[in-house]
Design a protein around this nucleic acid. Structure first.
Length: 519
DNA sequence: TTAGGGTTAG
């Protein structure tokens, strides 16, 4: 074209974006600025989208500034694209400030804001914006918005809100939308209702890779490793190609069900059979797999050989090994793992605490105390974790060892009783977290170091009236045996409430029982 | 010629 105009330039950039060449779209924008053709609002929205895809925050900010100067700072579409861009680049506050600055918003703007929160692990704020949308806007949420809302519910384990959103999906006729169904499969799986997940999944005529992956991840988290392998095989047979996330899902399943050989088989088949290059996250699953069956040295050897792309990836890898070494009393490996975490400035507080606990568990009290002092001196503070349980509309939060809540005494009494009965039946002591320490040579003092999850569970057992079905996750950091014993003793058959941990779905972590057994 | 959604290991 002898004289491309603004529409020609913008079309070309939009074409690059569609074709997955967002970098080239940005390059074209730079070229365009060298000509006499001025960008318009359409151009700006397009390049902002390119920045979103590339997660290029700095470029995005420059374009944002430029847009303000050119007078597009109040345009609805430009602003919506900016909200989305800041969200994709993990600058949620940036997204919110654009959102707040807008005089007019439409459903796309609202959805972008909700998604920005949901994608950045800020589910409660996502739901808060959704509530605001419902109170301010007379338009009904559509499939795009509901997908983000349901995703926020699953990250929070909010089954009540998730069910309500499912209702909105049905009323709006969005059940056929595959993005929506995959969020539902995921949400029910993460909220303790695998049977619902399964029902929804089974009704999908031709599940996509994401829908298959969601159900595989769900099965894996439930300790149904064999089922997750069967689902994987079924999807391959049906010609659906697994992706990197799918492999994380099956490897996770193998790891949590003690299927080491099967897991290694999957790792080795990834590239050859399925064209998916194994990454650090896949090797991390395998490290976890070795750890759960007590093969710490192999896990350690593998961890050392893995190339990590960034500190966060390394933190996941070494954090896995660190907690397993603590559980197995391998102070040597724990020391190396925590050193690596601290040096890379990742989860520093957690690394100190876990190493200190590892030393304490092998009786090296002086080192354990020394590490705590070091933390104090360095001003490193560990945020206490918590668990919570939703009963009807209320949420009850619990912290480890803290009994200062209503009916705290009753909870302690119940746990003592259950613990006593488990011991009578020959299960290892400490399985409910009541630990006895030698204090001052002779006196034995009971120190309550109850896990927050168990407080939440016991509280629910007391508060939920008899006659209501109680369902318990295969969880609570118990091995299979202790879990079965606990279920039998406490008379729990099924569950109707869920105990949540702040570290997302901690309680699914079977295989790491405090009795020390692995399976 | 423009903006929005899903699955991921400790």
């Amino acid at each position: 074209m002898p004289e491309p105009n603004v529409v020609s330039w913008t079309s070309l950039m939009a074409g690059y974006v569609v074709a997955g060449q967002a970098g080239l779209a940005l390059g074209m924008y730079v070229k365009m600025l060298e000509t006499s053709v001025k960008p318009n609002d359409f151009t700006v929205s397009t390049v902002v989208k390119a920045c979103s895809i590339l997660a290029e925050l700095e470029a995005g900010k420059k374009i944002h500034a430029h847009a303000e100067v050119m007078g597009y700072g109040t345009d609805l579409v430009v602003c919506s694209s900016l909200v989305c861009m800041y969200g994709y680049c993990n600058d949620v506050n940036g997204a919110r400030s654009v959102f707040d600055s807008m005089d007019h918003r439409n459903i796309v703007t609202w959805t972008s804001m909700i998604a920005a929160y949901a994608q950045n692990g800020r589910g409660s704020e996502a739901l808060e914006v959704f509530r605001l949308f419902n109170s301010m806007v007379r338009v009904r949420a559509n499939d795009f918005m509901l997908a983000s809302v349901i995703s926020a519910c699953s990250s929070l384990g909010k089954l009540v809100a998730g069910r309500a959103s499912h209702g909105a999906v049905i009323r709006g006729g969005h059940e056929v939308n595959d993005v929506v169904t995959s969020t539902l499969v995921d949400m029910y799986g993460k909220s303790g209702c695998f049977d619902y997940s399964w029902k929804i999944f089974k009704r999908i005529p031709n599940p996509s890779v994401v829908e298959y992956t969601s159900i595989i991840v769900g099965a894996s988290k439930y300790g149904l490793g064999k089922l997750s392998i069967e689902l994987f095989e079924e999807m391959v047979e049906r010609g659906v190609n697994p992706n990197d996330v799918t492999f994380v899902g099956v490897l996770h399943g193998c790891s949590h069900s003690g299927l080491v050989d099967e897991g290694l088989g999957f790792l080795n088949s990834m590239l050859e059979k399925h064209g998916v290059e194994p990454e650090a996250k896949h090797y991390t699953c395998v490290v976890d797999m070795y750890c759960r069956v007590g093969r710490l040295d192999e896990a350690h050897k593998l961890a050392k050989s893995i190339h990590v792309e960034n500190p966060a990836e390394g933190a996941l890898l070494w954090g896995t090994l660190l907690s397993a070494s603590r559980l197995h009393g391998r102070v040597d490996i724990a020391q190396e793992a925590s050193r690596r975490l601290i040096e890379s400035n990742q989860q520093v507080a957690g690394a100190y605490v876990t190493l200190s606990n590892a030393c304490a568990s092998t009786g090296e009290w002086e080192i354990a105390h020394g590490l705590r002092s070091q933390m104090k001196q360095a001003g490193v503070v560990k945020d206490p974790g918590c668990s919570w349980v939703e009963i009807r509309d209320s949420t009850f939060v619990f912290h480890a060892g803290d009994l200062s809540f209503e009916r705290g005494e009753d909870v302690l009494r119940l746990l003592r009783e259950l613990e006593g009965r488990m011991k009578e039946r020959g299960y290892a002591g400490g399985s409910l977290g009541l630990v006895f320490f030698e204090v001052e040579q002779e006196a034995k003092e009971e120190i309550v170091s109850l896990h927050s999850e168990r407080l939440a569970l016991a509280f629910a057992l007391i508060v939920i009236p008899k006659g209501i079905t109680i369902r318990v996750m295969k969880n609570l950091r118990m091995c299979k045996d202790c879990h079965e014993a606990f279920k039998a003793i406490s008379g729990i058959v099924e569950r109707d409430f869920i105990v949540r941990d702040v570290n997302r779905f901690h309680h699914f972590r079977d295989g790491s029982c405090s009795c020390g057994d692995f399976w």
